[in-house]
Computed example of a mutant assay.
Amino acid sequence: MADIREPVLLTAALTDLHPTQISVGMREVENKRENWREKEDDKKSLYLGSHLIPVVLGDQSQPFVVDHHHLCRALLEEGVTKVALSVMADLSSLEKDHFWFVMDSQRWMHPFDEKGIRRSYQDIPDSLTEMKDDPYRSLAGSLRRAGGYAKDVTPFSEFLWADYLRRQFNGADIAHNFNDFLEKALILAHDKKASYLPGWCAPQVKHV
């Protein structure tokens, strides 16, 4: 009989969670904060129970978040103290360098800074509050919600779109004219140059 592993479920304080990426889109975080505030109080616990945070256990069984960084940061900002975790792997027996090698190999980390430049794992912050703002990650999230591309299971797919947009706009400061850049991004999203990206939607051909 096959050995079926049951998922390991834990709870942890948000302040004890360690990120596996350097940046987030703070507009995305704010959007999730607003969504949280709009929920009725009796629905919030149900929401938390149905949104498990996937983690990998590192040294001394410390939890390292591998997804939902924006949600974790938003909940922390909103005063939520604990969340439920789903343990994807226990790497607590590994030395630090070996731990990060495995994390990188499994695509459980994204060591790129707010300018899209790859950094050492040593540059990944220790806490959720230390992650830096990447406006292009926010633009990529807004672009998906506006129909620019489809949701995809590819790890860090929004960061791939953020990198594409950053290159198309030559790293321009988009924070102060965000909506204008979003309109331009909607056009760029359907360009054939973006066809390598996860969730790309080919432009519809109008038949006469």
Score class of each variant (00 low, 15 high):
K96T: 15
V8I: 15
A202T: 13
E30L: 10
L9P: 05
H18I: 10
K44I: 01
S23W: 00
Y149V: 07
M103K: 04
N170W: 00
P54T: 03
L10R: 15
R33F: 00
K193L: 11
H190A: 05
L91N: 07
I187G: 05
Y164S: 07
D191W: 10
K39F: 14
S195G: 03
D41K: 14
S86D: 11
T20F: 03
S86K: 14
A89D: 08
W200S: 08
I22K: 03
E40I: 02
F159Q: 10
R167N: 08
A13F: 03
M103V: 02
K132T: 15
G49M: 08
W108D: 07
L94S: 07
L197W: 10
K184H: 09
R144E: 13
T154D: 00
G147Y: 02
S127E: 11
R166I: 05
L91G: 06
D90H: 07
S157C: 05
L188M: 12
D59R: 09
D126R: 13
F181G: 04
V80P: 10
S157K: 07
R167Y: 00
L165I: 06
E95F: 10
P111A: 10
N179Y: 10
M103Y: 02
L52K: 12
L165A: 01
F169R: 08
G25C: 07
E77C: 10
I124Y: 06
R37M: 05
D16F: 02
H176R: 09
G147T: 02
A89E: 05
P155F: 00
W161M: 06
E95P: 03
A89H: 05
D163K: 07
Y149K: 01
D126E: 14
I124P: 14
I124F: 06
A202M: 08
M26S: 04
E38T: 06
D173Q: 15
G49D: 09
F169Q: 05
L165R: 10
P203T: 12
F112H: 15
R73W: 01
D3T: 14
L76H: 13
D126Q: 14
G171I: 08
V55A: 01
I124D: 03
H51A: 04
L46G: 02
A2M: 05
D104T: 12
K184W: 04
V56F: 00
Q122F: 09
L57M: 08
D113E: 04
Q21C: 01
Q21P: 00
